[in-house]
Design a protein around this nucleic acid. Structure first.
Length: 421
RNA sequence: GGAGAGGUGACCGAGUGGUUCAUGGUGCCGCUCUCGAAAAGCGGUCUCGCCUUUGGUGAGCGUGGGUUCGAAUCCCACCCUCUCCGCCA
């Protein structure tokens, strides 16, 4: 959520930022409602001030004058009417504010869509094979480690079953990633609920605008997390942190649930895009001063996973037209998958500035004499599991259809190779 | 799911209609004292909004309504926590 004062004082700057994003929503309605709202507040306040004063006097009187009390009753009715109007305007204003995106940082390149995203760096060139590299769905079926048919039998399209060494591979990757971030990058492991309250989704910016990508249990009003970012954001909702607590680094492994109803027929083969997938998520709460450098170190932690797994990847910066709703600056990490011959997005690292903090009311006190300020929040995958599994299977495949295990995973898998049982 | 108890500021904890602009304590900040520290004493210390901003004003005591000139306090609904019972991986 943007600060209404920022919009009020710099409407043209906000308009330009939205234009760069390709965002069509207008702020005129917001400005209009804000002005009306402040008018009403002014009216209500002077009436309340009067009532407070007179009521205090009535309290001191022995004889309660009925005509004065009748006057105050009238004022009370006026206040109620204004209150009702003000509340309506306020909730309309709030709803609009919750639906407008963050303002991209000044150093984010202006662009229309993903084709305008600059590549920041590429690591580990595309591996050359002396044979035809197979896509992971073929490798998975031959090795009997991914069972697509039974996934569909259990849950329908876009579900799959990992089996035997396939399940072990994913589990090994999760363990490896968590251990790496905990031991070498200073993160604290969190195991959060996978179902959360509505207000958590508002805090993280998934609601109200992106409800159609979420699974929801209407009976209990539980929402299934589309990413661990949601519970992690809300860990400190409605809290005032002390400066010494910052920065806070959290890492969480969760399942993620997404409807993904938009791209029917696209990405249907393999395990690239499903309604349920596992992810290791990195999350930071920082001060305003340090968030930009914290974004770089968050990205570095995610890249470290790719490097230690020795999987080729590139880092892309998202342009204004492609950047996420809540983000002021984002990098994507894409791994090369030689079998399906595409770059797979395995991480998206974002600085959300105070956008989520404002929604979730997460603040800190810079020192004991200062007013509370909003923290900055950052998130990034470290990494998304199924796509790392794809990249790993396809990059480490051998001509005989077996898959070599990367050195860092050998202790977790207690095996050097994934072969047909 | 049933019964009972309870939700007050960073924390503890008073407060059952009007000197409560939320008592008191802890913590925190400043000052005094001291070579310094501790202790002690004095003062300060919740959050958010609006305005014509050395200041003024409003709101907030789990949440939302209601009663009243006036509500932390009375009424209604809901949420949450704790204890016991039931169920259960």
């Amino acid at each position: 959520m943007l600060d209404i004062k920022l919009i009020r004082d710099n409407p043209d700057m906000v308009r330009q930022a939205f234009k760069n994003r390709g965002e069509t929503i207008s702020i005129d309605e917001i400005l209009k409602l804000d002005e009306k709202h402040r008018e009403l507040i002014h009216e209500m306040e002077s009436l309340r001030a009067r009532r407070n004063e007179v009521s205090k006097e009535i309290g001191k009187m022995k004889e309660k004058p009925p005509e004065l009390m009748a006057d105050m009753r009238k004022i009370g009715d006026q206040i109620s009417a204004l209150e009702a109007e003000s509340n309506n305007i306020e909730s309309a204003l709030k709803d609009l504010l919750l639906r407008i995106p963050n303002i991209p940082h000044a150093d984010v390149p202006v662009g229309k869509d993903s084709s305008d995203n600059p590549t920041i760096r590429t690591w580990g060139g595309k591996k050359q094979f002396s044979f035809k590299a197979l896509p992971h769905w073929e490798l998975g079926e031959r090795l009997n480690i991914i069972d697509f048919e039974r996934g569909v039998k259990l849950s329908g399209t876009r579900f799959y079953v990992l089996k035997g060494m396939g399940a072990l591979l994913q589990r090994a990757l999760i363990m490896f990633m968590l251990d790496l971030h905990i031991r070498e990058h200073g993160y604290t492991e969190i195991y959060p609920p996978f179902m959360v309250k509505r207000e958590c989704l508002v805090g993280s910016s998934n609601l109200p605008k992106f409800a159609d990508n979420l699974y929801h249990d209407a009976e209990e009003d539980y929402w299934f997390v589309p990413t661990a970012e949601v519970p992690l954001t809300n860990m400190h909702r409605d809290e005032i942190l002390s400066a010494e607590q910052l920065p806070i680094y959290y890492v969480a492994h969760t399942a993620c649930f997404r409807r993904e109803k938009m791209a029917a027929g696209k990405d249907t083969r393999g395990i690239k895009r499903g309604h349920q997938f596992d992810k290791v998520e990195l999350y930071k709460f920082t001060t305003a001063e340090t968030s930009m450098q914290e974004l770089e170190s968050l990205l570095a932690a995610a890249e470290d996973v790719c490097r230690k797994l020795e999987l080729p990847y590139r880092v892309i910066q998202l342009c204004t037209g492609d950047i996420g709703f809540a983000s002021v600056k984002s990098y994507d990490i894409e791994m090369w998958a030689p079998g399906c011959e595409e770059w797979l997005e395995v991480s998206s690292c974002s600085n959300c500035w105070d956008f989520q903090a404002r929604r979730a009311n997460i603040r800190y006190r810079p020192d004991s004499k200062s007013k509370p300020q909003y923290v900055h929040t950052l998130n990034g995958s470290g990494l998304a599991l199924p796509r790392v599994v794809i990249a790993l299977m396809e990059n480490y495949q051998r001509e005989d259809g077996s898959i070599a295990v990367p050195d860092v995973l050998k202790p977790y898998m207690r095996a050097d190779m994934i072969t047909k049982p």
